[in-house]
Every structure is written in structure tokens, then in C-alpha cells.
Computed example of a mutant assay.
Amino acid sequence: MSLPARLAFSDVDETLIDCKSMFDFLDHYLAARYGPQGLRRGRRVREELTALAAGGTPREETNRIYYREWAGEPAGAAAEAGRAWFAERSARTGFYIGSVRDALTRHRAAGDGVVLVSGSFPAILDPIAADIGATHLVCSRPEVRGGVFTGGLDGEPVIGEEKRRAVRALLGRHPWIDPAHCYGYGDHASDLPMLTEVGNPVVVGDPALAELLPGARLLLLDGASAAG
């Protein structure tokens, strides 16, 4: 197999898929495992974290709070539930944002490495990465002891500046790749650190964000594009 000449980095939630996967999966998991009580708990978590974010709590902190909700849950059960969640959700029209999935498919066909970069976690992301043929997955990693989530993280949440560090670290392991030739796909201001590390940033669906990146391409949700 030839070595890739470029890497294409992509956020996941509301960039590649049309949902906030962490909340959607938490609802799915808790409802299946604990019934109506679990579903109410999932909704409570969503409401509390949404309120914190609206009040200015950094995404890095809300990410950590989210994973505390997984304390005591078996990692194997979460992985199994993630496969079931993906099979159910991906069968629905509109799960993938078609313009981004098509772009990543073209990258793969050109021999580029595809890298998913997300604050979500492997139970959710592994099936997506396998389905689109991603060569690397960089994400938040819940801490596991004795097969059970502790509620902590191994390392930092992959949000904001951590995305920049992740891109630099991966490029450091591929010294023959010029960052100026690489691509990045994101939809939110927290993706800016990642997008500014590559020569070809692509903003998904947000003209205001594209204006912050001179030369960025704006990828509209209907598949059209415009120069930034």
C-alpha cells in the first residue's frame, strides 16, 4: 500500500453526520438499558449540559461532565450499543451529511488518509470510521478500569485547541506530508484550531465561520460550495 500524500481531517457531529451523537447515543443507551427512567436521565443530562453551554461553560468542560455520566457503565455494553445505534441511525435518510461524506469518499479514492477528529468516543465513532473507511480516529477516550468506565478521561477532551494538537501530532508522524496540501472539514468555531492547521479548510454550512478563515471553502448542506 502506498503512503498517503495528503490527510483529510474531519469533525463528525453536524459536519459528517446530522446529529449531536453524544446526546443521541446516550438516550439510546440509557433507554435500552434502564427503560423510561434511563430516557428521563438522558434528557436531564442534555438539558443540563445545554444550559451550561448557553451560560458560557467551555465545551472542553461540558465534554468532561458528559463522560462523568458514564461512570459505572460497562465499556463492552457501550461498544455493543454503539454498533446497534449506528445500524439503526445510519439506515435513516439524512444520517450522513451527503456533501461531506462524498468529499471524504473522493479523498479516499485519491489515496488520501481520512482522519476523524471528535470530542465523541469510540463506542459511537468506531462504526462510523469503519463505514467511511477512515484511516485514523482521534477522539476523547473515556477511562476504563476493570472493564467499566470510571467517569474520567484518558487524556484531554478532543475539543478546540486539543484538535490543533491532534492534527500536529498526526502530521508529525507523517513527516513527508505537507500540511499545506491537507484538508480540514468543520462546522463550528471549536473546529477553527484544526482548520487553521491545514492549507485547505472547508467550512460546513456556516458562512460566518467561513469568513474567519481567509481562503476557506464553504460547503453548503445541499452539496453546493462557494469560495470563502
Rank of each mutant, 00 (worst) to 15 (best):
F25K: 07
F25R: 10
F25C: 09
L26W: 00
L26A: 11
L26E: 04
D27A: 14
H28F: 15
Y29R: 08
Y29M: 10
L30R: 08
L30H: 04
A31S: 14
R33E: 10
R33V: 06
R33P: 00
Y34E: 15
Y34M: 13
Y34Q: 13
Y34I: 00
G35N: 04
G35W: 00
Q37D: 15
G38M: 03
L39M: 13
R41Y: 07
R41L: 11
G42I: 00
R44A: 10
R44D: 14
V45L: 09
V45C: 14
V45D: 08
R46Y: 10
R46K: 15
E48I: 06
L49V: 07
T50D: 12
T50N: 09
A51L: 14
A53G: 14
A54C: 05
G55Y: 01
G56H: 13
T57N: 06
P58R: 09
P58H: 06
P58N: 12
P58D: 11
R59A: 10
R59D: 12
T62A: 11
T62N: 13
N63W: 00
N63C: 15
R64I: 06
R64D: 02
I65C: 09
I65A: 11
I65F: 12
Y66L: 15
Y67C: 11
Y67H: 15
Y67L: 13
R68P: 04
R68F: 01
R68W: 05
E69R: 12
W70I: 01
A71E: 11
A71R: 13
A71Q: 11
G72W: 00
G72K: 02
G72S: 05
E73G: 03
P74V: 07
P74N: 07
A75M: 07
G76K: 12
G76T: 09
A77P: 04
A78R: 03
A78P: 05
A78D: 06
A78T: 10
G82I: 00
W85F: 15
W85A: 04
F86T: 05
F86R: 08
F86P: 06
A87I: 03
E88W: 01
E88H: 07
E88Y: 03
